[in-house]
Amino acid sequence: MQNLKTLYHPDVKTLDNKSIFTRLATRSIAIKDNTILLLYTERYEDYSLPGGGLDSGEDKIKRMMRKLTEETCAQNIKNIKPFGIYEEYRPWYKPGFDIQHMISYCYTCEINKELDITKMVHYETKNEMKAKWINIHEAIAHNKKTMANSNKKGMFIERETFLLELLAEDLD
């Protein structure tokens, strides 16, 4: 799969002599007629792709489908294709590691436009996450406004906005 971008957080000056925790994740990209299925998170005031971390040995495609179903209740997931990899190096604030290396495997897919009731986990419900079909350009503009003006923004909004802009280029 093609590497789309590698981002180094401004606080990560070097990887030399650092203990690095690697986390693998999948992201789902479902687009219909210039709208994209995203998760809006009230807590962070941002739009993000459905997805989540991989457990050790878990199949990437199966995980992508499971998270997409849990978070959005997407039905009839098909025509899954690799889109690319987005890598991030960020400070890690839990004991034992200095840096988190996040590798997100992104896949496009087709789904039914109608969604059912989601099965969010506790923190997703607490953060008021909701699945929504939205015009991709509106989502990009919203995230950019959040990045510029909100002190609530989440740590992954740069990744999400980059991926949305890349997808919008493909649509245009």
Rank of each mutant, 00 (worst) to 15 (best):
G96A: 01
K60T: 10
L7C: 09
N3V: 09
I140M: 02
G52T: 01
P10F: 08
R27N: 05
I61Q: 10
L167Y: 05
T41C: 13
H9I: 00
I117S: 14
R27Y: 09
N34Y: 03
I77Y: 12
I157K: 00
M155C: 14
M147T: 03
G154P: 06
R23G: 14
Q100M: 14
I80M: 04
T72Q: 03
G96D: 00
L38A: 05
R63E: 06
V12M: 08
E110F: 07
G96I: 03
H137K: 08
L167K: 04
Y8G: 08
G96F: 03
Q2A: 07
Y40M: 04
H9D: 08
I36V: 03
I61F: 02
K78R: 11
I61M: 07
L38R: 02
D172R: 12
W92C: 14
H122V: 04
P82V: 00
D33E: 07
L164V: 06
K113C: 10
F21Y: 10
G52F: 01
R43V: 14
Y86A: 02
F83W: 05
I140G: 00
I134E: 08
L171I: 08
E110D: 12
T26Y: 01
I157T: 01
E114R: 09
L49G: 00
A141N: 09
A139M: 03
T161S: 01
Q2C: 01
Y8A: 13
R27S: 06
G57Y: 11
R63S: 15
D33N: 05
L38E: 06
N76Y: 15
L167H: 06
K132A: 13
N112E: 12
S104W: 01
F21C: 15
P91R: 08
K60V: 07
D59S: 09
A148Y: 08
I117F: 06
H122A: 11
K144T: 09
T69Q: 12
H9M: 00
N76V: 15
I29C: 10
Y93L: 13
G57Q: 12
N151R: 11
T108I: 02
D172P: 09
Y44S: 07
K130W: 01
C73N: 12
Y86P: 02
I140R: 02
A131V: 08
M120R: 07
E128M: 15
K145T: 09
K67A: 04
Q100L: 12
G53D: 12
Q2I: 10
M147Q: 07
K13G: 02
I111Y: 10
M147W: 02
D16C: 00
G96W: 04
T108W: 00
R90Q: 15
D11R: 14
P95S: 10
K32L: 15
L49N: 03
N143I: 04
I140P: 00
K126R: 14
E158Y: 14
F83Q: 05
F162S: 02
E110Y: 13
G53W: 14
Y107D: 08
G52N: 03
E138Y: 06
F156Y: 11
E58S: 09
D59L: 03
K145H: 03
E70P: 00
P50E: 01
